[in-house]
Design a protein around this nucleic acid. Sequence first.
DNA 1: ATAGGGTTAG
Length: 616
Amino acid sequence: MELLCFSSDSLRLLDPNSLNSCKSLSSLKQTHAVLLKSPEPKPLIPNLIAAYGRFGDLGSAISAFGHYPDDPNAFLFNSLIQSHNLNSLFLTSIHLYIKMLGSNIQPNQYTFPLLFKACSLSSELSGGAQIHGQVVKLGYVRNPFVAVAVMDMYMKSGQSFDAEKVFDGMGEKDGVAWNAMVTGLVQSGRAEEALEVFERMRREGVGVGCVAVASVVAACSQLRVLHQGKWIHAFVVRSGFSADTVISTALLDMYANCGDLGLANQIFGEMHTKDLIAWNCLVSCYAQYGSVENAFKLFIDMQNSKLKPNGSSLSGILPAVARFGSLHHTKSCHCFILRNGLESDEFVITALMDTYAKSGDLSTAHNLFDGMPKKSVVAWSAIISGYGTHGCCNEALSLFDKMLETNIKPNHVTYVGLLSACVHSGFVDKGREYFKRMIYEHGITPQAQHFTCMVDLLSRAGLFDEAMDLINVMPIEPPAEIWGALLGGCKIHQNVELGDTSHPNSCEIYHKIEELLDDIGKLGYVPQIKAVLQNVEEDMKENALKGHSEKLAMAYGLLRTKPGMPIRIMKNLRSCEDCHAFMKYVSKITLREIVVRDTVRFHHIKDGTCRCGDYW
DNA sequence: ATAGGGTTAG
């Protein structure tokens, strides 16, 4: 009976599937034990090594590899490299390759795709190029698997033009090669060219796979070309891809990015399986383009449908929290992140940091930034713009220098942060200088936001001719905001609000305001009536000023918080001069630190002065 | 026997 069992096991083991299909590490170890008793275990050792790799047990993989010290071969090395790749130990994979060459074992066509993956995922770009050279010398570029792997490595490392050369040099291009090309172009930001390659594929009758279709939809999303996106949507329906979850998700993202949240929502509603990615995508669409309330609601609906938020869910919802601007909500998200072990996700921490800065807590933002092991250009841009909006232009500029020292290349977002920092502090010369550096040193074409910053900066400084000259040379249609910036520079304040008495504590609040006005009047505060529009009756002006929302909020804050606590106020319009002066006096007499967020920046007011230096 | 392409998020 015993013997019968044994012989049937060893028969089964002739098939590598018995190793590949093990469902758990313990069943793999059992199979391993059986394998060792079989008469010819050796041919299956590579499969065993790879299987250990899949379960993350590198120790067992290595010891299985060491079982045949006299006779290593390429297959054995390939499996060991693969198991290191599977565990993200890419540098070890590359070292194993060097060891392989040192043991005089010729790599084969299976070795190279593994190595290119290791190089691209570990950013060992020079190593990748070297191995590419060896591949050419050995003639393996003619193998389509190897060629696509080289191509993919160049695409993923931002060298899309080198990838293109490899693609053009391929004799026979199969579907995977074409699809990899389209996908790579989209990921390299060459969306127009991706759409051209897609057209060529259709003309030449290359089967367009679902992967490439998803990528061209993403290309339309990047380019925000609704018309072409709709055409490809029709193609999706015609080609029978409508039920594909990945393509549907790409379509919903495309419609959202093109500004059609209705169609995005419709696609989502029609999806058969709504996976976490689809939910995340919809949440982030609403967080960016829709109402903050809807984004929060969707985030809760997602959890009600039994899906557990992951890192992407958090980086999707955080922009909504940032728009909302409440420090309380930001802290809740932070707790959620810690409770769910998402604090090592680089994207999550970047989004959280940005949200802290936008909720007024710059020091927590900076601590998070300092703690990041890898600081991407997005992280740098976020902290720079954080310092800018908090009125610390010098810090923003010196962070930019540090960023360049660490060899991170700025992008157009970084420059929006820098230029707006200059705007908030009135650094006209610096602004002009950085605008030039953006174009000539970093080769970035200025976009609407950059022009708007410059016009804002110049007109606030009274340089209206220079501002108009800039508007006249703009190669793009001036956006509406640019005229706002120009007018804003004229210091025409139009933020009159009615005195609002709907609050249940309104009597108490107005009483507090009167009390404060009384106290600060003794210190020299005079209501700045010119801050009110001209068509208001003289005697009404002073009353109108009392009802400005930040004064109401200030009084409420004083009534409801403990002495000495900082008061944070958010405002949906720009602060007026009178309120600003009021805040400065109040900070002095109450010994409070006051942080006011208006539409464009933060005011940090303490002991009678504001960090903005009265320039905003 | 082992190897190549995918959607979202700052």
